[in-house]
């Protein structure tokens, strides 16, 4: 879709809704988006923005392939897939961290291959490769906390927000892999051909998000 519109991919869910609120605040509102219907694409001809909701882990693909010019995505997805995109600003929302967690009494035995259960095999591999630690990855799609409890893995690499779920299951986060928050990303070619529009959006969003930290 190569026209004057800026195509924006938002992640479905709470993070996407907070991100849209920031866009709205910056003057890129699109009233249609609040209507309850089954439409997938929403546009506003006044301010030339077009929004669509996609699965959070797909935002980076839409932007990298140019179907969306810009998008909102968690740093976890960027670290996992390492898409070839520009990372324009930190929204300072959806703040959490990627951490290694294990049972409270766990001690790492360097003689054994460490079994790591995770939804993020790329991040886990990279993290342990830097430490030259041999690991076996067990890729799961949900309920990661279950893995160490059932002896499926020694540790997990997962997103930790408050640590409550971990604590309730007798797990504890003992290493931080990376801090995570939502980022505004841009397709590299769109950034060049729609430079004025995209840099303006990025500047406004960045200013609003900086004010938010000061609060």
């Amino acid at each position: 879709m190569s026209d004057n519109y800026v195509n924006i991919a938002l992640p479905k869910g709470r993070l996407g809704e907070s991100a849209y609120a920031i866009f709205e605040n910056a003057g890129y509102d699109c009233p249609d988006i609040h209507k309850q219907n089954r439409k997938l694409i929403f546009e506003n001809a006044q301010n030339l923005v077009r929004y669509f909701w996609v699965k959070p882990s797909d935002v980076a693909i839409y932007v990298e392939k140019g179907a969306a010019d810009i998008g909102i995505v968690g740093k976890d997805i960027l670290l996992e897939y390492r898409p070839d995109v520009y990372e324009l600003c930190d929204l300072h929302i959806g703040i959490c961290r990627m951490a290694v967690a294990a049972k409270q009494n766990f001690t790492d035995n360097p003689d054994m291959v460490l079994r790591v259960a995770t939804k993020f095999p790329g991040i886990a591999k990279h993290y342990y490769a830097e430490k030259s630690r041999e690991i076996e990855i067990i890729k799961l799609n949900g309920s990661i906390e279950l893995a160490p409890l059932l002896g499926l893995s020694d540790v997990i690499v997962d997103i930790v927000e408050t640590g409550k779920t971990l604590a309730e299951n007798g797990l504890v986060a003992y290493e931080t892999v990376a801090p995570i928050s939502a980022r505004l990303i841009s397709n590299k070619v769109s950034y060049k051909f729609k430079n004025t529009a995209i840099t303006q959006i990025s500047k406004k969003i960045s200013n609003i998000c900086k004010e938010n930290i000061d609060d």
Binding site: S2, G66, D84, K188, V189, S190, F193
Partner: peptide
Amino acid sequence: GFIDGIPQS
């Protein structure tokens, strides 16, 4: 080099 409409260089 880039051409408008092609998402990679």
